[in-house]
Simulated scan of single mutants.
Amino acid sequence: MGSSVTSKLRAVLFDRDGTLVIDVPYNGDPDLVRPMPGAKAVLDALRSEGIATGVLSNQSGIARGMITAEDVASVNARVDELLGPFDVWEVCPHSDQDGCECRKPAPGMVHSACRKLGIAESEAALIGDIGADVRAAEAAGATGVLVPTPVTRAEEVAGARLVARNLADAVVLLREAP
């Protein structure tokens, strides 16, 4: 672990569903929140080193009327209780059709999180389970790491520059990344 790499990385941002917590589609129930194996240990290790953590989550169920913003807030509060505290939260409530700047793979949430943290995008990484997470990171000038799940498409894995088996391996990759 060279200190030059560690000092460059000032924040690790995470996708929520399928990355930090087990994906429950359009979840509005905090009682269904279950952390991914190893997530808490990875987050605690980053925080102990003074690296900021954040969550960036597309929540199109709000735009589709399947869940409310309050539902998402209560689920996020439960994630924070189990895995937090996170330094920054970003939620995109829009659907694909809205053409917003925040919905991943657009870079808006990465830019916003970095602004709130007072860091350059090049000092941040985004870890997620689908190609949109990695593309959002790269579009913003951050480093993207893909941690595939069984639902991650093969072409997304093939298209990602950095791919890890789990969150702990993703952080190791970030330390080794040029």
Rank of each mutant, 00 (worst) to 15 (best):
V75Q: 12
E155Q: 13
T19C: 05
L46D: 01
R115P: 01
E156L: 07
V91F: 08
V55I: 10
A160T: 10
R175I: 07
L167F: 11
S122D: 08
R115S: 12
E81F: 06
M109R: 02
P93Q: 04
S4P: 07
M1W: 10
A136G: 13
T152A: 00
M109S: 10
G131E: 09
G118N: 08
A120K: 04
E176L: 12
I127H: 00
V157Y: 13
A177V: 15
P25N: 06
D17W: 02
A137L: 01
V171H: 08
V21D: 09
D23E: 15
L117A: 01
V42N: 01
A170G: 02
R175S: 07
T152E: 05
F14D: 06
S48L: 07
L13N: 04
A177S: 14
V42R: 06
T149C: 00
K116N: 09
K40L: 14
D129F: 05
D96G: 08
I67P: 12
L117T: 04
F86V: 03
G118Q: 09
A170V: 03
C92E: 02
R34K: 06
N76Y: 11
I127M: 07
V33D: 04
V72G: 03
V24A: 08
E49H: 14
L162I: 05
N76F: 10
P30E: 13
L126M: 14
K104P: 08
R10P: 10
A177G: 12
V171G: 03
L167C: 07
L173Y: 02
F14P: 05
L126R: 03
A11H: 02
A158M: 09
G2F: 13
Y26Q: 13
S7Y: 00
A158Q: 14
G2E: 15
A170E: 02
L43P: 09
R153G: 08
R10C: 13
T68E: 12
R165A: 15
V157L: 03
S48T: 06
F86L: 09
V110R: 07
A63W: 08
A170P: 04
A139R: 11
T152D: 01
K116V: 10
V147K: 05
V110D: 05
K8A: 15
G2D: 15
L9S: 11
D29W: 06
E156R: 07
L117H: 01
R34H: 08
S4T: 04
V75A: 10
C100V: 09
D15P: 03
S95P: 02
V145G: 06
T68R: 13
I22S: 06
G118R: 05
E81Y: 10
N166A: 12
R64T: 04
I51C: 13
A140V: 03
L146V: 11
G65W: 10
S7W: 05
A142Q: 09
